[in-house]
């Protein structure tokens, strides 16, 4: 006597399960952050590099010990990719002569507004940047043109010394 096939096979799983396998939508980046910053808009080439850093968590070239700091990234945008010469003063809280150089740099920033950019960097807050540029003595002022360091002025010197270096950077840049 042939066995009667009374049991039916289990029904196939509901079709909706297959739709659930779709890839999740990628997370949206926070508004106003990253590539949408004004600096990134101004320098499209920099935005790609900057965005690459944000997405792939690439270490910045200017953090030799692998520290990933926004400052190192901002450095690349504001200094390396600047279209006009840049002056950076390296200082520390309890460095007495730094106070004198502060005043000189503040005056220069006003007198050369639009023709150069002036920034100050606290070496205690951002030691990697200071280390990557071999800063030893403080105060040290660096000048950059087209992303290259053109002058390094160490110690407390008369304002004319800084002005001379700046004028040279500007005239070279305007050729």
């Amino acid at each position: 006597m042939a066995a009667t096939a009374t049991a039916c096979p289990a029904p196939p799983p509901p079709r909706s399960l297959y739709r659930g396998v779709a890839l999740a939508a990628p997370g949206r980046r926070r508004a106003g952050y990253g590539a949408s910053s004004s600096a990134a808009r101004r320098w499209p080439g920099c935005r790609r590099r900057w965005a690459a850093h944000r997405i792939r968590t690439v270490s910045c070239a200017y953090s030799p010990r692998g520290a990933k700091t926004i400052t190192a990234c901002s450095w690349n945008e504001y200094v390396i990719c600047s279209d006009i010469p840049v002056l950076i003063e390296f200082w520390a809280s309890w460095c007495g002569p730094c106070r004198m150089v502060h005043r000189i740099v503040d005056e220069i920033a006003q007198e050369y507004a639009g023709r150069i950019k002036c920034y100050k960097l606290d070496t205690d807050d951002y030691p990697q940047v200071a280390t990557s540029y071999s800063i030893e003595r403080i105060p040290t002022v660096l000048l950059f043109k087209d992303g290259e360091k053109t002058h390094s002025i160490t110690g407390t010197l008369p304002k004319a010394v800084y002005v001379r270096a700046i004028e040279k950077s500007i005239s070279d840049s305007e050729q």
């Binding site: 910053s37 450095w75 100050k120």
Partner: peptide, 9 residues
């Protein structure tokens, strides 16, 4: 500084 701080974007 007379310019916006570039280190805190």
């Amino acid at each position: 500084s007379t310019t916006a701080s570039p280190f805190c974007p």
